[in-house]
């Protein structure tokens, strides 16, 4: 939360600073155009802060991981850098695992931390599946997508990726 506030403040100062410096050197008409640009510019830094606004993402990960802290390893999450249409964003998750009876991936939870609700989907694997799955999801806005994998021995691993969303995909 403090990080979010700090980064927002920093961006805010940068925007204001630019505005002041440039106003000295340009005509009124240009300044007006610039003013509009600054308003847009101010709106943009709000997006990453909004993405940090908490839904139930942390709780969802905690309850899925069973109290363990997921290690950032073994999980690969593929998503577009920029999703033009948040209504259908392709996501592929793959996990390093031998997939034998003794050692396999059991469940993989996908979380979106900027959606109205964090949970997106939980995949269930068995030793006769390949630890990889692809689907299409809805993202309301620019945010982080997190994949948490739980192995049959209870160990948990994760990966996350930020996706910039041009048009949000939550109905309306």
């Amino acid at each position: 939360m403090t990080d979010a506030a700090a980064s927002y403040n920093l961006l805010f100062k940068i925007e204001l600073g630019e505005n002041k410096n440039m106003n000295n050197a340009i005509s009124r008409r240009q300044a007006f155009g610039l003013g509009a640009g600054v308003i847009v510019g101010l709106a943009l830094p709000l997006r990453p802060t909004a993405a940090l606004a908490k839904n139930d993402a942390e709780e969802a990960i905690k309850s899925f991981a069973g109290g363990k802290t997921p290690e950032k390893a073994k999980v690969k999450l593929e998503l577009p850098e920029i999703a033009e249409n948040g209504n259908t964003v392709p996501v592929t998750v793959s996990i390093e695992s031998p997939m034998t009876k003794d050692s396999y991936v059991k469940d993989v939870l996908i979380i979106a931390d900027g959606n109205p609700r964090a949970g997106v989907i939980t995949f269930h694997f068995s030793p006769s599946a390949v630890p990889e799955a692809n689907t299409r999801i809805r993202l309301a806005e620019t945010q982080n997508v997190v994949a948490v994998a739980k192995m049959n021995d209870g160990s948990v691993y994760m990966a996350s990726k930020e996706v910039k969303v041009t048009i949000g995909g939550c109905g309306g």
């Binding site: 609700r117 997106v120 269930h124 599946a129 390949v130 999801i137 809805r138 995909g169």
Partner: peptide
């Protein structure tokens, strides 16, 4: 059971899955 999924409303319309089995 070979493969499965629990879906939330954040899965797109016309749910699509691609997966592999051995």
């Amino acid at each position: 059971m070979v493969f499965g999924a629990d879906l939330e409303p954040a899965v797109s319309a016309n749910p699509y899955f691609q997966f592999k089995i051995k």
